Amino acid sequence: MNQLRSDYWAALESRDRAAALTIVKAEHEAGRTATELIDELVVPAQARIGELWLSGLWSVEQEHEATAINEGLVHWLGSFAPEPDPDRPTVVVACVETERHSLPALVIAEGLGWAGFRVSYLGGDPDPDHLVREVLLTRPHAVLFSASLTSSLAPQKRVFAELRSMGIPVVVGGSAFGGDPARAAALGATAYAADLAEAIDVLEQLPGRLEQVPVPDRTPGDVEGEWLVEQRHVLVEGVVARLLDRMGHADRRLQPVWWPDLVGHVDHVVGCLAASVVTGDETIVIEVRDWLTQVVEARGGERAVVGDVWSLLAVPLRGHPLSRLHLAAGAPAAAESSQKGSTSSAVP
């Protein structure tokens, strides 16, 4: 990764959109390409934003404001892309459903546009029906999905299978996939691409149309994963309510400062558990427990809170053996490596 540039970071840190744009404009006029500017300015800065949120030094609001500046600048750079080559194929680029961290998908979409592809960009958390209509309308060469949060992965196996059943390749990328093709393959994706260059290589090598693959039968992991997704809200509410009782903070004025965010954090844990069960990848649960430990401790909480979350979540999982097995796989890891964190989860 390129070194964080101090003047650009200063503009983001103060949420000064005009100053950030001035820097990018000057570099662009000096001959720097859009891809170079994104790699040298946007990507390192976005990584730093995530680190500051994870460490508790930045709020979600600060992260969102700085990220919005980065996204706006990527859009601005994309306006200089040449007209798409009419002989090049159309590709659809989107985040997976429920994934709102759209900057990585935007970078890929604009990068493919600069490479001459015709791109239909659907952004973050696309409506499933809209996605299907777009696919049927454009009959794309491939659909590219981006996922930053591992907790968003479990429902995607069905989506990928439906696209593959139409003979449309599915290419995936993003930190949620853990940096290698294993999780992508477990979800039925055609290919995994770590960055823009790999995505272009994959698209260049794909045939015009793949063989239609029948939607596979549901596995026991799929069944339990679907149950976890369907019951996610109920499970989270139950864990948080029982944790509140256990902590003895009936008076909300006495709750710790990190409490308001705990619902979202527990929701992320349940989503990651579902992803672990569906993909058969127990490291997802290990990663998210290390992540939750780091988040809680960085905000003044005690590590014991994480153990409480785990024990309370295990109770409603009775009768769901795979879920309990995967949850238990994460239990010993946090005590041994609570400071490690998770790159696939280290975002608000």
Rank of each mutant, 00 (worst) to 15 (best):
P128E: 06
A147S: 09
V119G: 02
V42I: 03
V213I: 13
S344F: 00
L235G: 03
E65L: 15
P260F: 05
E226L: 09
E282F: 11
V91R: 00
E230L: 13
H326A: 12
E61M: 14
G238C: 05
L262T: 02
N70I: 05
S175P: 03
S148K: 07
E61R: 07
R324I: 08
V266Y: 06
P214A: 08
L57G: 04
D7W: 05
G208Q: 15
G78N: 06
G167N: 13
S311T: 13
V93S: 01
P84D: 05
G319M: 04
E297A: 14
I49G: 00
H101Q: 06
P332H: 09
S120M: 11
D85V: 13
V309E: 04
D308R: 07
D261S: 14
L73A: 00
A189G: 10
R289L: 12
E61A: 13
R253E: 12
E211L: 14
R303I: 15
S276A: 09
E226R: 03
G301N: 06
L54C: 14
A81T: 03
P126S: 05
W258H: 09
V159G: 01
G113A: 12
H64I: 13
V202M: 07
S102Q: 12
H265N: 08
V347Q: 06
P126Y: 00
A335T: 12
A115L: 10
I38G: 01
